[in-house]
Design a protein around this nucleic acid. Structure first.
Lengths: 183, 183
DNA sequence: GTCTATACATAGATAGAC
DNA sequence: GTCTATCTATGTATAGAC
């Protein structure tokens, strides 16, 4: 009925749902198998551990944000905030779980890979000009939060991860205005 | 050495630390007792369940935000966003756990009391003028996110929940600018 | 108010048949 | 690729002594 790749993907989809609803630590392998409609053993045929499922879930999003970090210095504030809005909307569920669930951080830490803090800090730092300016730093926090969490709230509100162009513009503009002092 | 009220408070302090580090579901009663330096049974003398510890932890913050919701209609945008910044800074750890950890939501849901979503929605709605304007709604999401998550990031960054007046002003101003269209 | 000991359920994970 | 059955550790919670 289903080949390995397909089943693997179904497991990841289900894991994303349940981790979002109950958290990583709050979701058991039995919960996953239950919704999958199979046994725990069947699930362990596709992944060696619960942690490995989480890692697989976070891999692509982390890579995408890492790429953004790498480009950050060459982008304008508007381009950077726009990319944050786009990535957050596209990766809605994972982006929310990623830096919202403390048990995810704890699990990743156990594997020496707590990237999401680094990513948030790097992107925020890229928005601070001039470096060392305390007020600029606060505005960067506010602007980044507006882009990221504003988008998360907007996507949840609108019920779609496909943000219309006008909505995207509104969010980016709002974040930009938070970043720049009056003038 | 310690009377009941004191021990109870110590447990709450420890619970807040560990729930923040590992999440609610990711923290066991044995973990709490371990850091408390006593047995699990001793802990159960002060609280009837792990869920009760969580509820006790969330009670005061939830009440504070509820009060703000009640006043929201009488406040200006600036006053409302200022109160969000103040409450978030003051209740830093709990405010972060409160709407960051999915297992907290799940546990509260089991007790019919998922207030934090309601609070966020109500406060965001209070910022939308005129009602029904899609763009205003998005700016409200961005502004609220800037105030709340910008403050969370700022407090984590500064390492103190006592936000200096200039920092508070910078955050409120940034959130306000996110809210209001250019003009 | 704290302890040891323990009950009982569920956790993550594996063995081995089909 | 999926199953039943099971291992072992840990989970929440309680009993009863001190």
């Amino acid at each position: 009925m289903a080949d390995a790749a397909q089943t693997r993907q179904r497991i990841l989809d289900i894991a994303l749902e349940l981790f979002t609803e109950r958290g990583f630590a709050g979701t058991s392998v039995a919960d996953l198998a239950g919704r999958l409609g199979t046994s725990k053993a069947a699930l362990y045929h596709h992944f060696r551990s619960k942690n490995e499922i989480l890692a697989a879930l976070l891999e692509a999003p982390t890579r995408r944000f890492d790429e953004l970090v790498a480009q950050a210095s060459e982008l304008t504030d508007e381009q950077l905030l726009g990319r944050v809005v786009d990535l957050t909307a596209e990766l809605f569920a994972v982006a929310g779980v990623l830096d919202g669930d403390p048990s995810v951080q704890a699990a990743q830490r156990a594997q020496l890979l707590d990237r999401s803090r680094d990513i948030n800090q790097a992107l925020t730092a890229a928005l601070v000009a001039p470096p060392g300016d305390a007020d600029a730093r606060l505005r960067a926090h506010a602007a980044y939060a507006a882009a990221k969490h504003g988008t998360l709230a907007a996507v949840a509100d609108l019920g779609t991860t496909e943000l219309p162009a006008t909505s995207r513009t509104a969010l980016v503009t709002a974040a930009l205005r938070a970043l720049h002092p009056a003038g």
